[in-house]
């Protein structure tokens, strides 16, 4: 299956990526080749029903998460934030500012 530039742009938008015109063309060609290769999966007979993954008991994934009791990570976390105000992350408003690009 081949992916054209429009399809690549649509998927990139879903993934919150904006590609340059050059990237769109290159990716369309490269991803088409990769998806063609992946399409060979249709030819393989898996032959068994999905069991839903590994045994949860064996893997320990069924265990409840128990809160470990408040490590003082908030300051470390906020130190990494590009912008913060008091104890909150600061981000642009959800809707574009009037007269803005969006």
């Amino acid at each position: 299956m081949s992916l054209d530039v429009e399809e690549v742009r649509r998927i990139a938008e879903l993934a919150r990526l904006q590609l340059s015109v050059g990237e769109e063309a290159t990716f369309a060609s490269q991803l088409s080749e990769i998806v063609d290769y992946i399409d060979q999966l249709r030819a393989f007979d898996a032959g068994v029903a999905l069991s839903g993954g590994a045994d949860p008991e064996e893997q320990g994934v069924a265990a409840n998460d128990v809160p470990a009791g408040g490590r003082p990570l908030l300051d470390d976390f906020l130190d990494n934030a590009p912008a913060s105000l008091d104890r909150f992350l600061l981000v642009p408003q959800v809707k574009a500012t009037p007269g803005g690009a969006e």
Partner: peptide, 21 residues
């Protein structure tokens, strides 16, 4: 939003996400 690179000048949250990534 939480760490690492943030694109400069984005006027909306959605734009900041897309530009930063």
């Amino acid at each position: 939003s939480r760490y690492g690179h943030r694109a400069a000048g984005a006027r909306s949250l959605q734009r900041m996400y897309t530009d930063s990534r």
